[in-house]
Amino acid sequence: MSAYIIQTDRLAYAYGERQVLQNISLQVPAGSIFGFLGPNGSGKTTTIRLLLGLIQTGKQRITLFGQDINGNRLSILRRVGALIEIPTLYPHLTGQQNLEIARLARNADRDQVGKVLRMVGLTDDASLKVKGYSLGMRQRLGIALALLGDPDLLILDEPTNGLDPAGIREIRSLLIELSQEHGKTIFVSSHLLSEMEKMVTDVAIIHNGHLLFQGPIGGLYQAYQLRIGAVPNLHGHSAVTLEDIFLNLTNASI
C-alpha cells in the first residue's frame, strides 16, 4: 500500500466558467500533520470537498487509503473524520446529543462518546446545549465529532477560525497530541501561517487554485532560505518564517 494517505492527480475544478483548481497533485504522507495553506479563496475548501466526495470529480482520480473516492465513498469515509469550515453542530441540542448523531452515523460504540469528550476536554459541558458554548468549545466539539469512530485520517478545514490565542493554542496542542500519541494523519487547512508553522510536519501551499509547493516543512525552509536571502539567527535557527516564504511564493500580501 502507498505511504500516502491522500493522493490526487492533477486535480482541476471549475465553478461554471471560473477555474478554482488546476493541476493539484497532493501527496499526504501517513502519520503527518499536513498543512494545506493558502489565503481565503485560494481553493482549500473546494479541495477538501472534493476529497470528501461532496463534489463529484467526474473521471479525475482522488485516492484516500489507496482507494478511489469514486465508487468507494462509504468505505473511505468510515476511516475519515472531517470538520468543514464552521463546525456543524445543532445548537438546540446538547454536546452529547450532537455526538450521539455522529455516533449513530458511524455505528460507533457508545463508550466512544465519553472518550472523545475527554480527549477534547468537554466532559463537564456535554449536557449543556451547544447554543451556550463559546466558539472555542464549538471548535473542540467539532473536533470531537471528527474523532468519533476512531478515524485514521482527520480532515480539518480552518479548525482555529475565530479562536482567541488561548483557543488556538489549545487546538494546536490537541492536534499534535492526536498525531504523536494516537497516530492520526491530520490534513489541516488554514490561512494562519504562523500557527501552522508551529505544528505541521508537511505542507502544501495553494494560491489561486495552483499548488506552489508541497513537501516536508524542513525542506521548504531549506529550499527558500537562500532564495529569500535570509541568514540564520543568533540561535543558529532559520530566520525565515513560513510567512516570508509564502509571500515570496505568492508575491502577494496577506
Binding site: 466526495g53 461532496l54 469515509l77 464552521i86 456543524t88 445543532y90 438546540h92 452515523a105
Partner: peptide, 18 residues
C-alpha cells in the same frame, strides 16, 4: 431549515452513511 441554518448538509454527506 435545521440543516440549512447550521450548514449541516456538507457534514451529513461527509459521514459514512449513504
Amino acid at each position: 431549515a435545521m440543516e440549512h441554518q447550521n450548514r449541516a448538509f456538507a457534514y451529513l454527506y461527509s459521514l459514512p452513511v449513504p
